[in-house]
Structures are given as C-alpha cells and as structure tokens.
Design a protein around this nucleic acid. Structure first.
Lengths: 185, 185
DNA sequence: GTCTATACGAAGATAGAC
DNA sequence: GTCTATCTTCGTATAGAC
C-alpha cells in the first residue's frame, strides 16, 4: 500500500541515522534498506532528503518521548527506564545503533534534523521536570536534575558505543539512580 | 614553513569538525579555512583524508586531556573547569563549536576518528578516576562518578548547542558540583 | 613544495516512459 | 505510482608541469 512504503522508508531512515548519522546516510541507502521502489522517492517526499530527514526525526522524537513516559511512575523509574532501554538497544545491535535524537542534534546535522531533535529533547525534559515537581522537588532544581539525567544518559550512550561496552551507560544509570533517590527522600 | 602548513591544516580541521562534524567536512573546506596551498595536501598527508582525520583527532585529544588536568587541584575543580571551558567556547563561537571528541565519537564517524576519540575519553576518565581515588573515594565508585561527569558534560554540550543556550550545560555543571562535593565530604 | 588539470565515484535531483 | 536514464554537483585522489 501507499503509506506502507512511506512508513518503511521512515523506519529505515531512523535506523540508519542511529547507525551512521544523518549526514552519512544517503537516499539510496534508505531505499535499499526499506526495499522501497526507487522511482517513488520524490512521490512520497517531494521535498527530497530534507523532508525525509525532518519527518524521520519528528517520528523518532514522538517514539522516544512516548517510550520515556510510557508508565505513570516516578522520575527515578523514568530515568532508569530510559537508560535501561538504550543498554538493551546497544546490546541488541552490537553497539551499532544509538539514540536517533543525538544523531540528529550533533554537530554537522542540518537544521531539518536538529530542530525536531531539540523539540523532542525539550519535551522529555518537560516530562521529567514535571514528574520531579509532582514528587515534591522544587521547580528550579527539578529542571536541573532533569537536564543532568538526559545529558548524562545521552553522553553515556555515545561513550558506550565507542567503547563497545555497556559499562559507561550502566555506571551512569546507577549514579543517576542514587542521585534521584536522594533528591526524592 | 613546512610544518606551519601542516599545523594550520590540522587546526582548521579540528575547528571544522567541531562545527560540522567529521563526515561533513571536506578536504577543500580544510584547505580553504587554513589557507593552505591546494597542491600540498597529499604531500603533507599522503594517507589522504583518513590520515588528516586521524591526526587531527589525536591532536584534539591531547589538547582536551591537557586542558582537563592542567592544574593539580581536586576532582570537583577538574569537572568544573571542563564544563566552564565549554560554556565559554559555546558563547565565544555563538554555539557553533562543540567538543571535538564528541564530533569524532558520534554515530557515523569513521574509525579513523572514533578510535583516537575513544582513547582520549579513556584518558580523561582515568585522570578523573585517579583524582577521586586520591581524594579518598573508593575505586569502583570513583570510576562511576568519573563516567557520570564526562557523560553529562558531553551530553549537555550537545543539548546547549541545539538549544543555543548555555543553560543545560550550566545546570549540569552545578548538579555535578554538588554531587562531587557530597561524595568528597 | 606547490600548481593545474583531470579521473573517478557518490549522491541529490529531475525528466519522461510505462 | 513506479521505472530508467540522465544531469549536475561535489569530494577524493592522482598525474604531471613548474
């Protein structure tokens, strides 16, 4: 069906972005990975690669945000879930696939990628901040703690990737757990 | 002089990597930015772009590591100096230039870039871990705390870049300062 | 040691047939 | 809606003159 091709292309694009980054992923790569017909690229994405990138990252942002606050539990659980999710992802993909938002936000990524990524980061920051406030943390500190957790996990994913070891991410997860537990006491 | 051209090319390469990432920086870009003569590329770097990338990241790693433990003070100061340095760098460059190691370690970067970056990360992790141990922190926890700080600052630099605001990095810096102060008490 | 010219390939994008 | 062919641009790399 028509939307099936679109969805397949977006899904493959996200996977490739996580693996090689946005700039190093070509249109042909996405076509090949998705098995989409070669001639239908500009039919589905008349705006070309910019549109594909933009839509793929937006889609990834929705996915990450949904995954982030899927359960209505506390902030410590949200952070732990976020880190644990990427520990599993790194192991599942043999350290090939990181966070799509990071791939989109990092140096060199065009605005089509970085703007939706920034929006998604802002969204999960708001979610986590609100969860902390509801748990009794003062607003300013809640924002700082949320930033710390997101920054640390995203940074640790990159470190774990380059070292091909989950240790950095696991260490980060544990430290964050202690920090959050202490802040909520 | 001969080495002058080489040095200029390496310096420009690092700056461009910080700005656009490794993959999106072309040879011509480096030539233009450094003002190096066009014909001398393969004279200075017979290994082509791979060699240029490799040497540039190695050089950046030495620089970052030296900056990291330039003063022989405590771990809290090292972390604060690291974060503060990049806060200034982001403001100085209007959020264009991030950390060269991150640019080299991130998804899509080739092995010529990611391997020296991993080495440099490992080096500053060792430095910070040792400083924590000397300050009386138990070895395993020292390693975790070092990982947390490096991950958080690197992640926060990316967030600050995409938001064009030093707030994420500043919040991260403050939280890390409290954590380190508490751990050393 | 530096220059110009050029080969070669990859990638984005468009045109026109089916 | 999908296919093939083609154009253009760009980036790496090499060859050969000065």
């Amino acid at each position: 069906m028509a939307t099936g091709t679109r969805e397949a292309m977006l899904g493959s694009a996200i996977r490739l972005f996580r693996e090689r980054g946005v700039g190093d992923t070509s249109f042909a790569d996405v076509l090949e990975a998705s098995g989409a017909p070669r001639g239908s690229v500009y039919h589905h994405f008349p705006g070309g690669k910019k549109q594909l990138v933009s839509e793929a990252i937006e889609s990834a942002g929705v996915y990450v945000a949904a995954n982030f606050d899927q359960a209505d539990d506390g902030p410590a659980e949200m952070v732990d879930r976020f880190a644990s999710f990427y520990m599993r992802e790194l192991e599942r993909t043999d350290f090939r696939e990181g966070c799509p938002l990071m791939a989109a936000a990092v140096a060199g990524a065009s605005e089509e990628a970085s703007i939706p990524a920034a929006r998604a980061f802002s969204q999960i920051h708001t979610s986590l901040t609100n969860a902390l406030i509801e748990a009794g943390v003062e607003a300013r500190r809640a924002s700082s703690l949320a930033t710390l957790a997101i920054s640390a996990i995203e940074g640790a994913i990159v470190l774990s990737r380059t070292e091909k070891s989950v240790e950095p991410l696991d260490q980060t997860r544990q430290e964050l757990h202690e920090i959050y537990t202490a802040a909520l006491a």
